[in-house]
Structure formats: C-alpha cells, structure tokens
C-alpha cells in the first residue's frame, strides 16, 4: 500500500497568556492510500490540531509531516496552498459555503481556482451535485438549503478537484442523527471509490463507521486500531 500521510514526532504548541499550551506532544501516524481513519477523543485532546497539521493548514512546532510524498514542514504557505487545492479536500463542521453563490457555483469555485475551464467545471459540478443527491438544487443558495444539504454541497466542493485525500472535521457535528447517517453513507461511497479519508469526531458512533480508529488524549495517540507496531 502507498503511504499518503506520514507524521513523525509531531508536536504543536500554542502561545497562551505568555505560556505555551502543548496541543500535541509527539504524535506518529501513518495513513495508507484508500484508508478511512477516524481520529477520536474528548474535546481539547488535540485531534483538530492534528488534522490541521496532517492537511498542511498548520505547521508543526516540531516533527515532520509528509503528505502525498511532500514534506509539509518544509513547504512555503503558497506551496501548501497549491497542494491543498489540487490534492486535498476539506469538509468542515460548519459547512462554510459562500452564501452569495449557488450550490453549483460553490462546487465550481475550487475548480475555477485550479484553472479549469467554465464548461468542464460546470459539467463536473452538476455531476458531483447529482452524486451527493442534490441534482435538483443546483441553483439554490446556501441560505435556502437545509444543514444536511449544505454539508452535501460542501462534500461536492471538497471532491471538485478529484482529491486523493479528504479531511473532515466533525462533519456531522451540526446535523441530526438521520442526516449525519446520510453524510456518513456518502463518505463511504467516496472512500469506496478510492479516496483516502481522515475524519475527526468526538462521537464514537460516527468514528465506528471508519475502518480504523485513532484515539487521542492529552495531545497523544493512546490507541490505534490499525497500528502496525509504530503508533
């Protein structure tokens, strides 16, 4: 299996009131292509911090992170940004769709930034919205969509540039159980088509849908259901 994420000895400190808060204290984690892992743990254990480091949103205070063979710790912000645009997808708890754009335009946006022509991106956006079950809502703006529908649009947006890795931070956190189940079923389909998934959740029930669970506490990985000795 190809390793798509390789984190070694990753630590992250945040300054707070003149002191350093140790959010992560030396995490080792490897993720292979096609895997779906859940990072679970109580609030404040460092799981979102870890996700941000693995995805190249933040830089570690120490340690190294390789994403798709690229050393994130050595890349400049602009390079990390390009990598995120072309190779990585994101789904956030609060959807964060652009309220002034239609569902279709929201999905088109990352493709437009990647330089894909209008006709091609329009076709793919419609295809993706069909995939997430919103083919009939392409012209609707986010304020006119339900929470579940907005999250589906966010997933379609995350898949726009055919990412190899999809990161999701509490993707069902704002949804009711039934809608959350629908979103997880959608993730299952995305993963089944070969996309590597890294999902952060505090809900053990949601985490159980992934094939591998990484449990965190106090900035450390305390259990990894898929550990092969290293973690």
């Amino acid at each position: 299996m190809t390793r798509v994420i390789d984190a070694r000895g990753v630590a992250k400190d945040y300054p707070y009131g003149g002191e350093a808060v140790h959010a992560l204290r030396g995490v080792d984690l490897g993720v292979d292509a096609g895997e779906w892992i859940s990072i679970v743990g109580p609030s404040g254990c460092g799981k979102s911090s870890l996700l941000n480091l693995l995805a190249g949103i933040d830089a570690p205070s120490s340690g190294t992170v390789e994403l798709l063979g690229r050393p994130l710790h050595a890349l400049r912000e602009a390079e990390r940004s390009r990598l995120r645009l072309r190779e990585v997808g994101f789904v956030f708890q609060r959807f964060h769709l652009l309220a002034v754009l239609t569902a279709q335009e929201n999905v088109e946006l990352p493709m437009s930034e990647a330089g894909i022509g209008r006709a091609e991106r329009r076709g793919r956006a419609r295809e993706l919205l069909e995939f997430v079950g919103l083919g009939h809502r392409v012209k609707h703006r986010p304020p006119h969509l339900s929470g579940g529908e907005q999250q589906r649009v966010a997933i379609a947006r995350a898949l726009a540039n055919r990412p190899r890795v999809l990161f999701a931070d509490e993707p069902t956190g704002e949804l009711d159980r039934r809608t959350g189940e629908e979103i997880l079923a959608l993730f299952q389909r995305v993963n089944a088509e070969g996309t590597t998934m890294v999902m952060v959740t505090h809900d053990p029930g949601v985490a159980a849908r992934a094939e591998r669970t990484v449990e965190m506490a106090d900035g450390l990985v305390v259990r990894d259901s898929g550990a092969k000795g290293g973690s």
Partner: peptide
C-alpha cells in the same frame, strides 16, 4: 471570517 478561512483552507491563494 469563516468563509475566508475556508477558502484559504481549500487552497485559494491569499492574493486572490
């Protein structure tokens, strides 16, 4: 602010 942070997270260049 959230929208802007998300745009940056999905890889939209800062200058854009």
């Amino acid at each position: 602010f959230g929208e802007i942070a998300t745009l940056r997270a999905v890889g939209v260049a800062r200058r854009r």
